[in-house]
Design a binder for these strands. Structure first.
Lengths: 201, 201
DNA sequence: CGCGGACTATGACAGTCGTCATAGTAGACG
DNA sequence: CGTCTACTATGACGACTGTCATAGTCCGCG
């Protein structure tokens, strides 16, 4: 999370994502971003000549990359990968964060979609790209676990949808209940798609 | 949807929900709400002395009631209710709207959660209440279909989570793919929970 | 008629926003 | 040394925002 020692540009993108997570795009002012990143305000227009829209887009892209990297990490850490195990790890990351840091922040991609999908076309596509980048390693992992190729993508979409929705509900309730519930209910279904293939080898 | 002839107060709440749906809470200015509702600007402070926060909260509550009513309608219209049929109807409503009216608006409860969960406590609880009110008739319907009592609530949470997430993805992609995918993948699981009970009678 | 409450109208306020213009510093290179 | 480029600093601008104060209209009731 706190990879503070990068260039000031990366820090600003990261800070933008952090602030967007909390109160949406409108609540993440340019001055706030600079302050949060410990970067000079004047650098904003230097590094992001495209203005706020560019900054938001890069923050969304960063979030997509981050999510994809986490998926790879989860998989690498699992001795016996299973679809339910992967989903559980993805949800557990949010449960852990909510418990440790409170329910202040949600998913920045979701926030950008809600706030900008209609107003800023480039941000909308940035969000779509982020979801796609996130879902790709998930689908690939499912295939490796024996899920038929044509269903892997669909299940990845289902997993991310359920996770995003549960994050919303959890944040509104200030309770991780929705996340644990979704994990419990979705797990068996996911494994049911992999099982008929894997032991058949 | 367009129940235009109500009192000006209701129209303003409705308009607020409509605008929040599109660009988030920040993009729904008070002046815009009055204009969209065809209501005088001066009425805002008269009907909503609690300011924008009150207006947003009522819009969120309205959305929760609306969603619950729709669930009741879907059930009443189904000759042979099934969990997958209910979920399909819920998702289909969104598919129809996206196809007919474009991807301009998402779920106002999700938007309010993203934008206000951290900043405005009352809006956060309003969103939680809206989700609860929405999920209650879903859970009750599942019970009536033979889903064990202790799982009905969990499945309702899963359904709403998956739907909310799919709405987000669909809006970012400007494609109903996520909604159709989630419907297709979740349907069998949901019916699998009801089947073992119902035919046993 | 006259009074009173519900509702409307409108301009002003203080604040914040993103953006820009302008000037300034720091360091590398010739 | 001079100069060029990368980056920083800061104040100002106009366009908003939500909120408020004040005055005005309308209509029913006594």
């Amino acid at each position: 999370m706190t990879v503070s020692e990068r260039g000031p540009r990366e820090r600003m993108v990261f800070s933008a994502a952090q602030l967007i997570r909390r109160g949406g795009v409108a609540a993440a002012g340019m001055r706030d971003v600079a302050a949060h990143a410990g970067a000079p305000r004047g650098s904003l227009q230097h590094y992001f000549p495209g203005g706020k829209e560019q900054l938001v887009n890069e923050a969304v892209a960063w979030a997509g990359r981050y999510a994809a990297d986490r998926v790879a990490r989860f998989l690498a850490a699992m001795p016996e990968p299973s679809p339910s195990g992967l989903f559980s790890a993805m949800a557990q990351q949010w449960i852990d964060e909510f418990r440790a840091a409170g329910f202040a922040g949600g998913c920045p991609v979701a926030a950008a979609t809600v706030d900008c999908a209609e107003a800023a076309e480039s941000t909308r596509t940035a969000a779509a790209d982020a979801f796609a980048r996130w879902s790709r390693p998930v689908a690939e992992a499912l295939r490796d676990m024996g899920v038929p190729r044509e269903r892997a993508g669909s299940l990845a979409t289902l997993m991310i949808s359920a996770l995003e929705g549960a994050i919303l509900i959890a944040r509104s309730e200030r309770d991780v209940r929705a996340l644990t519930t979704v994990t419990r209910e979705l797990g068996p279904l996911l494994d049911g798609c992999a099982a008929p293939q894997e032991p058949a080898r």
